[in-house]
Nucleic acid binder design. Structure first.
Lengths: 267, 267
DNA sequence: CAAAAGCTGTCCGATTATCGGACAAAACAA
DNA sequence: TTGTTTTGTCCGATAATCGGACAGCTTTTG
């Protein structure tokens, strides 16, 4: 009851009007942005009545915020929503500011680097930077949306957030975590604790299939609250303890540089 | 009456519910994305009753789609809308696909190059590529939104659109054009005609203050309909007739390359 | 300083768009 | 063909929206 203090920014804050339904649907569609969503899937994911979904989707299509793939009838986020997003990005130019640094970081680490932000209970990947290496670990893409907390970048942000808030997010998302193949809750909580102590994200013991590890750090606003996360994934055993420490140090340095740039831009 | 045939994608297609108001407001705010909008300005721009605006803005703020600048009380597009935009962009990766080509084009032309798309009756700048040159002509920025038809890129797209559709857009936007300082309607229509004949955008005789000219070409989808426009601006007299033709040729070549890449990506 | 003007926040009854159960059509499978 | 699943539509009850009117607050003006 006290944990609702953290600004919630859910669609649940809205009265049950058309805008409310629209937001829920758009987020649900975004969670499937590469395949597109069938209507039945949206019913399952949102638990809204199907006629309502039908009606609202038609409205959203009429303004170009949602498009329908003619070939398979699936729904996707529309072009006009992307256009609106460009305008919104001009106020929140994290990716643009971070682009150069993260590209260089990726090159120098020989690892794929991700940039992610939090949106409510979701995480959204807003940048992916591939190293020159032939091997690319990880399967994220720009625009990918999923439950917040399941990537190294999220752990990096968690490590810089108040413990209460972390617990609140984890509790609300736990059922979504469990839908992920091979999720190991005990191991996840161990990683959370270890990350909180270290102040950086140590992604490990999370999926039962232990082939990859990850590291994450947060980009902080002037008040010390994380506004974005930088993450990277590597195959188990590729980095020894020293290399891992070195990698984290470099990531934190880059995060600091980006934070400074961001602050300078907005000021 | 027959010209409404072209898919309208306006908010006017919606019933007057909260979603309808929200779309109108978001577009209005986007039109001022660098300064932020005061509430009075939104009243003037949307001609919605102020209490309605107040209510809907509060709703939009509660989901993070709109933010309020604490220092001056102005409204801006919010972070979560940008996050949603990233997901939508993953389905419409024009900018990502075009980035390399347009950067190179800008370098080789020694001119600033813009990439824009149409969203309803608006144009949205989704890319700006500065040359190495010290002189940067033009004042557009990524995310800028304005009436469609007032930039070289728009003229390039107009030149590849059916005459009826062009006329419809121009007619509906004419009052917005006239609000622009120094707009010369007769000169504008001459440019429109010249562009239609040439098949490329020839931006000239548009503003009474004749210090700059512009060139534009369209990026076409497989059916030949423009999905984006490439534009550039230069100071009067910098290019002679031959240089201008050469510039246009290069731009069209780049547009073709981008179109192919886009087609390959979506297929 | 007082008054006026402008901007912003809130209330609440009438209106009206939404809501969603129920039915129908279409696509697909067996 | 028949059974099953997915999608499209109708329409009365309901509930959210709508927006005029009022009030607090800040800035400008005489």
């Amino acid at each position: 009851m006290t944990d609702e203090a953290s600004s919630q920014k859910d669609a649940s804050a809205l009265p049950a009007g058309s805008l409310h339904r629209a937001v829920i649907l758009l987020n649900a569609i975004a969670a499937d942005s590469r395949r597109g969503s069938t209507m039945t899937k949206l019913v399952a994911r949102t638990s809204l009545p199907r006629p309502t979904i039908h009606r609202v989707l038609n409205q959203l299509m009429s303004i170009g915020w949602v498009e329908r793939d003619e070939t398979n009838g699936r729904f996707n986020l529309g072009f006009d929503l992307a256009a609106l997003g460009y305008s919104a990005m001009s106020r929140h130019p994290i990716e643009r500011v971070a682009h150069t640094e993260l590209s260089q970081l990726s090159m120098s680490l020989y690892q794929t680097v991700y940039l992610g932000v939090r949106s409510g209970l979701d995480m959204v990947c807003i940048g992916r930077y591939d190293s020159g290496s032939q091997i690319q670990v990880g399967k994220g893409w720009v625009g990918m949306r999923g439950p917040f907390g399941m990537t190294p970048a999220c752990l990096g942000m968690f490590a810089c957030m108040p413990r209460d808030e972390v617990d609140g997010i984890v509790r609300k998302n736990l059922s979504r975590y469990h839908r992920i193949e091979g999720f190991d809750e005990a191991g996840y909580r161990r990683s959370l604790t270890a990350s909180a102590e270290a102040g950086v994200g140590l992604y490990d013991n999370i999926l039962l299939d232990r082939t990859t590890c990850g590291l994450g750090v947060a980009i902080l606003d002037p008040s010390g609250y994380p506004i974005a996360g930088i993450g990277t994934v590597y195959i188990n055993g590729w980095l020894d303890e020293n290399q891992r420490r070195d990698c984290l140090e470099r990531m934190q340095q880059v995060a600091g540089t980006i934070a400074e740039k961001l602050h300078a831009t907005s000021a």
